[in-house]
Structures are given as C-alpha cells and as structure tokens.
Design a protein around this nucleic acid. Structure first.
Lengths: 236, 236
DNA sequence: CCGCGCAAGATTGGATTCATTTCTTCGTCA
DNA sequence: TGACGAAGAAATGAATCCAATCTTGCGCGG
C-alpha cells in the first residue's frame, strides 16, 4: 500500500494522532478499497485502530471536510457518493485551475523538478503494469500535485490535491473505460512540455488531458442518485 | 452582526450543534473582532457558549481546516496569522480562478441574478457608509461568492468562499490603505459587465479588481513573520 | 543580582460514561 | 398474510473524567 502524503500537503494534521486514521482511511477510500456509500461505524473503526471513538470522530470530521465522507446527523459517516453534477463540476474546476498552474510550472521548472516528475511517472507506470489500480490512481493524483508544487503555489496545490482526491472517488463511481487512469502518455507529453519551459503547450496539454479524463466519465444527467425515493415514486 | 451563511455554502456543518460555535467564531474572526494570533482556549469558549470542550474542539478543528485558526499541538488554537507568502498566494489563486468564473457567470447571467448582485452591492455600500468595516469585508466576500453561484459552480463557489475568508484575514493583517475594501465601484463595473453578458469585460474587470486588492496589501518579503525568533536573533 | 531547576497550576489530548436518536425485531391485530 | 407498533438493541451526540504536556512562578545557588 502506498503511504499517503496528505499530512505534508495539508498541514492541518498537526495535532493529535488521529492523523494516522485519517491518512489510512483516505488511502483506503482513494484506492477504492472501500466502496462509495459504505458505512463507517465509529465503534468498528475504533476497534480496528485500537482507539476510542473520539479520535475516529475527529478523523471522520476531517474527511467530511474533504468531501470524501458524508456525515449524516444521528446516522453516521458514509464514504461519499459524488453526484454526477459534482463529478462534472470537479472536472470543470480542474479545467479552470490546472492549465494555468501547468503553465506557471512550465515557466519556472528547473531540470531537477522535471526529474522528480519523471520519477513519479515511472512509479505510476509500474503501478499500472502491476495491475495495482488503486496505487495508480493515487500516483496520478500525486503527479498533478507535483506540477502545482513546481509552480511554487502551495495553496493551489492544496486545492488541486483536494480536487484530485474527489476525482479518484468519481472515477471509482462513474468510470466507463477501465483505462481511465492509463493515459500516462498524456502525462509524458506534459512533462516534456514543462521540461521545454513551453507554457502554452503545458497549458493546452493539461486542458486536453482533463477533457480526456472527463470523457471517460459517464456524467449523463440520468435521474440523479441523490433524488429521494419518495420523490421518484410520487406518481404512484 | 451579520449572520454567517457558511453552513449553506459548505454543507459540511450538518451534524451536531457545534455549527453555531463555528459560525459565530468565523464571523468574529472575519469581521476582525478577534485579532490574528489571539489564543482561543477551549475552556473559555466552552464557558461562553455553555457547552463542553468537546463541541468547542470540533468547531476549532473545522476552523483549522479552513485555515482560519492554527492548531498547535499541546498548545491550543490561535487565530491564524497568514504569512506574506500565503497572502500573495491566496490572491494569486483568486486571480487564476475568479476571472474565469466571472466570465462563466456573465455568459449565463439572468436579470434576476443581476438583481441579487445589485442588492448585495447596496448592503455593502450601506455597511461601508455606516463604518461597519467588518460587515463590509464579509459582504464583499459574499459578493464574490454570489458571482460564482450565478456561474452555477458550487464547488468553485466553495473554493472562492474559502479564499475570500482567508483574504479577509489577510486584509486585517497587511492592509496598507484603510479603503482596501472600499473599491465598490469595481464591484459596480463587474455587475454591469455581467448584466451585459460580456464575458471578456467581466473577466478583465475581475482580474484588475483582484490586482487592485493585492496592491492594497503589503506583501513585501520583509523577514517573514514565520521566521523563528531564534533564527532572527542569531547574529547577537 | 541573575540564571537555573523544580514544583504547582493550567491547558490540552484522549478515553470513558451518560443521554438521545435510530434501527431492528418481534408481537399483535386487521 | 401483511402492516402497524412497541420494546429492546445498537449507534451516535455530548459531557465528564483522567492522563500528559506545557506554562508559570518560586526558591536555591552561583
């Protein structure tokens, strides 16, 4: 299992030791080891990690803030099930933000930065080759984060990290193609553009890459999963 | 005091009744009623709101995730003091995101949407006229949120809301001009562009508006406030 | 007089306990 | 037989309690 690096990126997890539970749950969710909609009972998690519900609740609250779990009052925590609208909006947001960030990164990327990216790419390729889809999704996300880091934008990095996390959930829910994450040649082209310091290419490649990702998602507006049954069955 | 509308925007505060504490503290921080760096002791807040520290801790954790308070292990919670780098990055992020969102809003704005914006503007103007600076800052933020809402982008709205919150903190720390928030004519021009459905104007006006805001902030890299005293005084 | 060390107080971190709500199951009645 | 309802079980919401850490102030020694 890949270790999460969220604590480094977010900086929020500074206090207490619920950060471990947070990271662990997050990894499990992003790697698709826990299906969306799954209930996350506090007792059970406390048992698993040998801690009281207090820490579990803290971790769940943090995950809820990341929109990776949904807290329902008096009912508990569930792995989030993004609606199709949310799915579309996540990628629209990324399409607005990431091309600009990629351009910034391309503008100031040093050879050492490019090296780091290529190392990411290798790991990603290996994960795909080994059939570890969960790791592949997470590494893909980390690749996008890496670009934002090169751009020197910690805040935008956090935003992109969050959007990538939600993207992982979305892919696990709505992916049509099994290879939604296998488009590593797009990543390769991006690295080349960044290495060549060509802002325009980086921007456009990122845009088309995101469009391509979205095209692998079924976002047709078929009777949102969020509609209550009582609403749907009103006509009977 | 203006009532916060964060619960509506975020949707995270669905469970428990710590949302009230969260909203209240957030309003106080954004309205500059609590200075950055102020310690927020759990006991004291629990006393104020007549709840146990449990709920206070939950609220503080949520605020920490918003980067409005900083949690230091075994030391407690403090109102966040954004560094100048953070300040710059917040506005750089806004400069990347908001012009595009403004263009989207302009593309699809209906007259009713424009009406809502103008009502916002009136309130903002009144607050400025009455000298209620805190309310003015919050209303200014809500104006920006309103544009994102018109664009129909809930996720980008959340992101912008968060960035505006942090901007409020930044302004209270680094504002040079007392009128950093008084540039309501910029908001007026933006509304006009949106009303005219001219995407380009909206985008450019938003960009220049943000540049103007940033110009009112002192972001010179003078010995960052984050440098440890031991580091600064090493030479003695 | 100043600096160092130690102890008491205060504050946070986390677990436990109690209260409230919801879910499940079983029984009754139509 | 199926539906309604109540009682018990289980899970969450919140307060309280205990442990660990930090801060503060006093005393001691240099």
């Amino acid at each position: 299992m890949l270790k999460s690096n969220e604590d480094r990126a977010s900086g929020v997890v500074t206090s207490g030791r619920w950060g471990q539970i947070y990271d662990d749950l997050k990894s499990a969710i992003l790697a698709h080891n826990i299906a969306p909609g799954t209930k996350l009972p506090e007792d059970e998690l406390g048992e698993v990690y040998s801690v009281s519900r207090t820490l579990v609740r803290a971790a769940l609250q943090a995950l809820a803030h990341d929109r990776l779990v949904q807290l329902e009052p008096n009912r508990g925590a569930f792995v989030a099930k993004p609606t199709k609208r949310e799915a579309r909006e996540v990628f629209e947001a990324r399409a607005i933000i990431e091309p600009k960030v990629a351009a910034m990164a391309a503008a100031i990327a040093k050879p050492s930065d490019v090296k780091v990216l290529r190392r990411h790419l290798d790991e990603e390729h290996k994960a795909i080759h080994d059939g570890r889809q969960g790791d592949a999704v997470m590494l893909s996300a980390r690749f996008h984060e890496g670009i934002a880091e090169i751009a020197g934008q910690t805040i935008l990095t956090e935003i992109i990290t969050s959007l990538c996390s939600r993207s992982a959930l979305i892919i696990s829910l709505y992916s049509r193609r099994a290879d939604t994450f296998c488009e590593s040649h797009a990543h390769h082209a991006l690295v080349d553009a960044i290495a060549a310091n060509s802002e325009l290419d980086a921007s456009e490649l990122m845009t088309s890459h995101l469009v391509d990702l979205l095209s692998g998602i079924d976002v047709s507006e078929s009777a949102g999963p969020q509609r209550k049954l009582s609403e749907i069955l009103r006509g009977f």
